[in-house]
């Protein structure tokens, strides 16, 4: 004859049996060990009074359904984390503050088929929860890595284009205009040649930081190529993008870079484009257009912003909006207000 009490005591599963009055009639050794309550102390006591937190966890309801319907009931770790607040006791492994528990309530029927007792089994699922968390975290990291440019820690070109594509779809539906800015460090080759690649990398990292600090939360910044950066300005026309671009240009112009105890300044040129008049524009078309205006900015003496001017939703080739250093401004038409 199998010694069932011994069996129950040696299970590595918490086992409690309660009667209709919710009084504890069985409390196995696992429960003694984790709750630090010896069975002499809890047998005959009402479970939900000894552990009032069980009421918040909806246990009386579940026990009720088991007694009335004779079905199994379950208590989900995903939703509740744990039923009993037991501390984890693993010293050599990473763990969670409380033991994660999956709980099953099973009806114990008498000879006439009515439910006489409910057995509550508590499974410690902390380890699988941890593995699951680690898996989710590594998946997130991989995803993140595939989106981030390693040097500047901002979006890489691919993710910038993906985000732009998403934004374009939203804007097309809402009929709102979206703008993009393409910018390039002036004479970056000089920085690299005169001060070395380490200094060049520092400039790109620092620049990414300046740009990030100057943008709104919903603007999207990414490294477009070598020393080129792309910015998506959602919900903004050229006028708004021009304000952003000019703010960036002026911030960068005033910033003092410091590398190997040498202090120096750099400037950037910026070209703009928008979906005005062409809400179905593709990301490639938009950046191609911005690139054309960036080229014009370079041709106008650098350290300036050049943007298309619209007349009746069409870009007027002759009239260009521009801002920048004083000498550039003098050469071209002023910004329209």
């Amino acid at each position: 004859m199998i010694d069932y009490p011994q069996l129950v005591d040696n299970l590595s599963i918490g086992t409690i049996v309660i009667n209709r009055a919710l009084e504890v009639v069985l409390w196995n050794r696992w429960m003694e060990n984790h709750s630090h309550i010896p069975r002499e102390q809890i047998l005959g006591k009402v479970l939900t009074e000894e552990f009032p937190a069980l009421k918040q966890k909806g246990i009386p309801w579940k026990v009720q359904t088991v007694f009335r319907l004779g079905n199994f009931a379950f208590f989900s770790q995903k939703l509740h984390q744990f039923l009993f607040e037991f501390e984890n006791t693993k010293y050599f492994r990473p763990t969670l503050p409380y033991m994660q528990q999956s709980v099953t309530l099973v009806p114990l029927k008498g000879s006439d088929g009515t439910v006489e007792y409910v057995c509550i089994s508590i499974f410690d699922v902390t380890d699988s929860v941890l593995y699951q968390q680690q898996l989710i975290e590594s998946k997130r990291k991989v995803e993140e890595l595939s989106k981030i440019d390693e040097l500047t820690q901002i979006n890489n070109r691919r993710h910038l284009m993906t985000r732009l594509n998403e934004e374009l779809a939203v804007h097309e539906r809402s009929g709102c205009v979206l703008s993009v800015i393409l910018l390039d460090v002036d004479d970056f080759k000089n920085v690299n040649d005169l001060r070395g690649h380490i200094c060049g990398d520092y400039v790109l990292r620092k620049l990414a930081g300046i740009l990030t600090s100057q943008l709104r939360q919903y603007d999207i910044l990414g490294r477009y190529g070598g020393e080129e950066f792309g910015i998506v300005v959602p919900g903004g026309g050229i006028d708004q993008a021009l304000v952003v671009a000019e703010r960036l240009r002026s911030k960068v112009e005033k910033f003092t870079f410091e590398c190997d105890n040498n202090k120096f300044n750099i400037t950037i040129s910026l070209g703009l484009a928008s979906t005005r008049g062409n809400l179905q524009a593709t990301p490639q078309e938009l950046f191609k257009m911005a690139d054309e205006f960036l080229y014009r900015a370079k041709a106008s003496g650098r350290n300036c912003v050049v943007a298309p001017d619209y007349k009746d939703n069409h870009i007027s080739k002759d009239s260009i909006l521009c801002s920048g250093s004083r000498d550039v401004l003098n050469k071209t038409s002023p910004i329209s207000s």
């Binding site: 918040q56 319907l69 379950f74 989900s76």
Partner: peptide
């Protein structure tokens, strides 16, 4: 008296699980 203390979305899931199980 089904009223576990859970945030709204979890409560909804718990209700679905509970109805499903019953």
């Amino acid at each position: 008296g089904f009223a576990p203390a859970l945030p709204a979305t979890d409560l909804e899931m718990e209700a679905f699980l509970e109805i499903g199980n019953i």
